[in-house]
Design a protein around this nucleic acid. Sequence first.
RNA 1: GGGAGUAUAGUUCAAUUGGUUAGAGCGCCAGAUUGUGGUUCUGGAUGUUGUGGGUUCAAGUCCCAUUACUCCCCCCA
Length: 444
Amino acid sequence: MANKIDARNFKGTRDYLPQEMIKRNEMITIIRSVFEKYGFVPLETPAVEYLDILMGKYGEEGDKLIYKLDYKGGSVAGMKYDLTIPLARVMTQHNHLVLPFKRYQIQPVWRADRPQPNQGRYREFYQCDADIVGVNTMIADAEIINMIHQILSQLDIGRFVIRINHRKILSGITAFVGLPKNKEIDLCRGIDKLDKIGREGVLKELSDQGFKEDEIHKIFDILAIEGDIHKVLTELKNIFKNNEIGLQGVIDLENIIEYLKNLGTPLENIKLDLYLARGLDYYTGAIYESSSLDLPHIGSLTGGGRYDHLIQSLGGNDYPAVGTTIGLDRIATVLSQQNKITEKDSLTNVLVTIFDETSVKKSMEICSLLRKNDIKTEIYYEITKMKKQFNYADKKKIPYVVILGPEEMTTQKISIKDMSKGSQEQINQDELITYLNNKLGKNP
RNA sequence: GGGAGUAUAGUUCAAUUGGUUAGAGCGCCAGAUUGUGGUUCUGGAUGUUGUGGGUUCAAGUCCCAUUACUCCCCCCA
């Protein structure tokens, strides 16, 4: 025999066992139904893309994390890194799509970084994207943010915050401080840690980064702006008096806030974060990210923004676009660390037992009848002692067990045991469906 | 990409300064109970101690390498 194979998962990938899949499917059902409620239509794209399409869109770090496929001597393809670039590609290739094109997409993506399950970080993970192509009003941005709020609330993840910012505000700040454009990212990175390392820490970090004293001084002027969103935006407007690009960002955000109110979005979960940067290169306007307030170590649960020229950069029309991704695995991690995952081993409602050879036919008929009436039903596959059959129902947490023994045969009744109560009753066959529908809460 | 830690049965963990045949809980299988699970009682099965080398009279235990996993930073979903 050949060497023993060491069965294991590829690093950073997991098997989603039934218990987990049942929960994931429930989550996906919620997400999909919200997407559809807002008028989004489904799209799927291949796992693999040509490398020239993937490269250069995600920033320097991102490019390194693309899984490259090596075949026929040359690396020309890679696993998709997100769902936004594939959408942009689709938009360039299918001109007949009605604008605004609103699509949702729920698929895995791959990133070659170091897995960290505790933070919900994997190499293969699911993204649930919703994007609006062809609209440049902030109504679209507001709808996306509103929808994120809706989904996170419905998934019952506990306290969360959606942080918003604008690429043009970042540019405005960079200009205000007097820095060259390429320092923008360093600037954000340094200041973003304010919460973690405090004022002194940021000061040190910035001077280590080579920022001059007067520059740091100006940065702290901006840092000093505090208060609610409106106040901050008003003060920024003042600072950006002669700064057209920064001003544009502020106006966009003002509009978004206004529209969010119109949509009835509770603003207490939404925070303006002037130092939210987001690594992906293609963003051009408003950007947003959300995280759990109870489990901040898990990082971002959703992330998105406006990317007005990405589609053109792939050779398509210059369509404005905005969208978000919902990080299914991150959210699942939050729920699991909050012990909110009720473990289900089965979706079956009824187990039909088989008493002996003479009752096989009857049991199978009842099983079939239940299924015809949309009741999730299993039949036990062996003619064996009741003990084993009940034990199976118990292990799989199947709530009802049907018994058809000699006694039931002669009385023309069916015995049904309620496994959680331990109680058992006999009913007429023609009452069976009504009885179970009642028990399962299916009748109005 | 940088740093740290862990590895013993299906699983969670034991095993004295290195010292006989590596143990226990849970789980699993069987019986008590030939029409009934979840409780109880009785019995049973399961290990190349991650892998390879080294030190030693003797290694689960010490050393080196390797692999896997975990954690932190970076970045993100």
